[in-house]
Amino acid sequence: MSNVWYYVFTLVFFLFDYFILAMGLNIQYGETGILNFAFIGFVAIGSYVTGALALPSSVGTGQHYIFGLGLPFPVNLLLGGVAASGFAVVVALITLRRLRTDYLAMVLISLSLVLYDVTNNFIPLFNGADGLYNVPEPFAGVLELTTNSFIPFFAAVTGAIALLLWLVMSRITRSPQGRTFRAIRDDDVVAAALGKDVFRTQLKSMLIGSFYAGIGGGLIIEFAGSFNPTAWLPGETFVVFAVIIVGGVGNNVGMLVGSLVVETLLIHLPAFLPSIPNHPGLIEYFDTVVVGVLLMAMLWFRPQGIVPERLRKASSLGGSDHALVARGSDAAAAARPAGVAAAGPKGER
């Protein structure tokens, strides 16, 4: 397999992986309105736990980490997702009850920094700044994949997982539960006045989104075989935010588009460009600039994203045909709009 295909499948892997991460952040921020500025921390938890569960006992490996159970592939990945969800519950219990919007965001970004510093410096946990490496390849003993065949194979596995997670997520966002998420996003006081338990609902959203974060993180360490703190600097959260804002907040398909534009084309593709002579690493620095400029341009010119959130019309909500035939008195209402329509300008306060 030529190098070109190696690159292409690496890009395909990141396309699907960030699709998963973006769906996770989208249900928290895009659907429920929780500004989770610690998102990358949940990705890291998924990644470390997945890796540490796959690795054999740490004795004699030259690394320090907890677990070391040598669990086979899908099991460790699932537990990585569960670990991220479990941590989300703890975080939500502490923060969500009392804090809203910008205060919550500040606390969460601090949490992200604390997680980072602890992991970086407390070596017995996940090997400190060196991070985990030599993580066993999934299906290593079963499929006998070479380095070259592993990459397209695992990109396909990730694609299949992303597809499954997308089907699950669309089902959630289409359901009455999804509607309640969006009600809380639009106005949590109103949602509570309509009988919605805002805290419980936000907790659910945090739990689901963090599971997606954990799975996306677990796939990264399985793909790369290693994971260390440079991969999840607190600022990485904003790359995922850029993905969902560019793609279209509140639209699951938009997440795939955002992942393609931001993660694949702007962040990973340039890394494969030949470097500029005498300026190694310059292209990577430009990545960040380009993503920042794109993010600002999107917020200014097209805040709804490339694929905007769809309005869910009556016909798609299970309104039967006869239900949508104009009701008797509404014909009258349409004929006397004065009462309603004329109130408009005066009514706006």
Partner: peptide, 13 residues
């Protein structure tokens, strides 16, 4: 109003 939802969805909530 729940601004991002349709009129019908506002009631369904």
């Amino acid at each position: 109003e729940l601004g991002g939802l349709t009129v019908l969805e506002n009631l369904l909530v």
